[in-house]
């Protein structure tokens, strides 16, 4: 089932900081999912009352996302939400980026996966502080999880925060985390029609990274067709083709990141 229901208890959602030891982690924090409370008032006599609510169902998540955004704004932090299918190379892209740019920027990483500390541990090996959010049976990160993870991370000002969402091209599209930009990653080992099959994710992203381009000679993936499909869904979408393995195209990604840092909202710039 999904992340906020508590049906995956006793595991539930856990947030764990990646530490020095790379095995045997004990979760430091566990989100206690509030039980569904019934408010019975026996004896109270009530007549039926219609309430015209007109309230957005995701308003709670959106409010929390807005709160996260305030956190980021106050601390001059730029947050990126990385979304993709499992296996597109999100973590590899992050590892290389962190190693290459650590001298220029202060980085933090929030890793989302159903299970394991593997990705946060990979990030921790680069020397960057990372927390792992394990969603249990959940299929996406939500704004409340990011809020808890932020308090665990306690980031310094003027940093870049990468949020690696759960590998899933469907559900994370609906959940604003308070990010500055959303980045969809596809790899050339997937079908080039992914943007049409999973349009919501491409529609809600600002940048699309096409990863593993070193494998293009061996696969039947048409880069231009993939871009054309993605533009049908989102005419404003930007693209960067790269290989996190060979380093090809990484310069364009770094320049994009620099542009995001330079063009942050005016109040973010000192």
């Amino acid at each position: 089932m999904c992340s906020t229901c508590g049906c995956s208890q006793p595991g539930g959602v856990t947030i764990t900081r990646a530490g020095e030891s790379l095995s045997g982690f004990t979760p430091l924090n566990e989100i206690k999912l509030s039980p569904l409370v019934q408010h019975h008032h026996p004896g109270d006599a009530h007549t039926s009352r219609v309430i015209e609510l007109e309230q957005d169902i995701l308003s709670q998540n959106n409010q929390q996302a807005s709160h996260n955004r305030d956190h980021f704004r106050q601390q001059h932090i730029v947050a990126f939400n990385l979304v993709s299918s499992p296996g597109s190379g999100k973590t590899s892209l992050l590892e290389r980026t962190l190693i290459d740019l650590q001298s220029q920027y202060k980085f933090y990483v929030i890793e989302g996966d159903q299970q394991t500390m593997n990705d946060a541990n990979r990030i921790a090996r680069t020397g960057v502080e990372a927390v792992q959010v394990n969603t249990g049976k959940g299929c996406h990160l939500d704004a409340a999880m990011i809020h808890r993870a932020l308090h665990e991370l306690n980031p310094q000002d003027d940093a870049i925060l990468f949020i690696e969402n759960v590998g899933n091209l469907v559900c994370p599209a609906l959940f604003d985390l308070g990010e500055h930009s959303r980045i969809a990653i596809i790899s050339v080992t997937e079908g080039d029609d992914k943007p049409l099959k999973y349009p919501d994710m491409f529609a809600s992203s600002q940048l699309c990274i096409i990863n593993k381009i070193d494998l293009l000679p061996y696969v039947n993936f048409n880069v231009e067709r993939a871009k054309e499909y993605a533009r049908r869904v989102n005419p404003q979408l930007e693209f960067i083709d790269l290989s996190a393995t060979t380093g090809q195209g990484m310069d364009s990604w770094y320049q994009w990141l620099q542009r995001q840092m330079a063009t942050r909202e005016p109040e973010l710039v000192h």
Partner: peptide, 9 residues
């Protein structure tokens, strides 16, 4: 994606 109205008793 919204709750338009509720009838409570």
């Amino acid at each position: 994606l919204r709750v338009k109205s509720l009838t409570v008793s």
